[in-house]
Design a protein around this nucleic acid. Sequence first.
RNA 1: GGCCCUAUCGUCUAAUGGUUAGGACGCCGGCUUUUCAAGCCGUUAAUCCGAGUUCGAUUCUCGGUAGGGUCACCA
Length: 460
Amino acid sequence: MPFRVTGMTPNFSGVRVRLPPSPTGYCHVGTARMAIINFLFAKKNNGTIVFRSEDTDKERSKKEFETDIIDSLHWLGLEWDEFYRQSERTEIYRTALHSLIDSRRAYVSAEDSKKEPGKIVNVVRLKNPGTKVTFTDLVRGEITFDTTELGDFVIARSADDPLYHFAAVVDDAKMGITHVIRGDDHISNTPRQILIQESLGYDRPQYAHYPLLLGSDKSKLSKRTGDTSVKSYREEGYLPKAFFNYIAMLGWTPKSEREIMSVEEMIQEFEIADLHKSGAVFDMEKLRWFNRSYLLKMPAEEFERGALAIMESSLAVREVKWSEETGKSILNLVRERIHVWGDLRALIAEGELDYFFANPVLATDEIPGKGGNLQDAEKHLKELQKIIVGIPANSFNNPEKIKTAIWDYASREGRGEVLWPLRYSLSGRKQSPDPFQIASIIGKDAVIGRIESAVNQIAL
RNA sequence: GGCCCUAUCGUCUAAUGGUUAGGACGCCGGCUUUUCAAGCCGUUAAUCCGAGUUCGAUUCUCGGUAGGGUCACCA
């Protein structure tokens, strides 16, 4: 439901946005969404993107997390123009903080002094004028808060050690940020940041708060309701463009109402006013559907490269001997069976593809299939054997020709009764592609051999 | 609990002061020359509740209800 800000013409020239993750955990899906929305907005307006690592919490911030966040965002194809780390800007915060203290807009609070090894530490509090703060949110319109209840809130652990709100406000100003676009969870932080801003005499940026991503239980997406790290989706084999596309569509509907769109198309159509006001549930099934359509569009060579690599390594785990030639021949069959690369790994792990590479192990009583008996199955297999021997070897690369050769017999004797034993003898699986495709892939000799084994097994 | 926000099929969403409330994903069913997958076709399914304004409200207003967010010397 688009919301239009009326009576106001935002100045979009010289747009500068920030991506301010705090490196206290692996890249969260929500962080990715924050970055995507900011990215689309900035690109749409020829703006500048500033990446700012908010690592003021020395206890929890880790280099490893920062690296993961950067990698994950790069993986999604996101780039930025400037890079900062708050831990490297302490001098700037100190200066600003002292100016605030000197002008008596903030004070060192002796009341809550705390003893740390070797020294006494006093927090710094902002002198709260206790006014009503009203700001215009580009998504929600006008929002008013009464700030008296905030009291003189803490803005720094000590005169040298700023807290999030303070550092963020100073940075937004010093970095010339024009638009602060972030999740809903920051909406109630906004008034206190505005208070700091005003004390410092800074200009106010435009704010836009989009709703949070929700888990299946409708609460803020968390580990309880599914994987929340971008990493896990990357490892599961989701394609970055599909992931980007799906995430972008949660809470935003482009005018054209298309779903599958390239990044360029999304940039083209992006309007901040088209951001929704209510939260969207992150639905894995739909993500899988997005991924599938990207997988289907993927150029053949790229698909081949990806699929072959997975087949080889996954088959190795099962100690099934690998053949690149066979791998190439089952590419199409694989493509229509997976939504994500991880599906291919799972398929192989369950032994669903073994029979293309090695002779299957059969369970004798499965050979006839439902409602059939072993005698008939044996008879049919022996007949099929004769028919197949008569098929010219060069017809074998075409499943249709194999089918044609067998069809009359199968139709006459009952397709189920004939085809099931054939398919099972070739695959050793209750479920598989049709026997003609399998036969074509494994080749005439293997087909004859496998039918013979099945017949011998029945005879035992 | 205070403050803030939100409310259309199970999920993502479209639309309008008058529509058979549309689409997508999923589900279910059928077809597609055995099974699986894919494909095609189809079905099911929603305006949170109550008032008010209005000839008419899902749409506007108010009140409820429900859900969510936030209330740190975290970010």
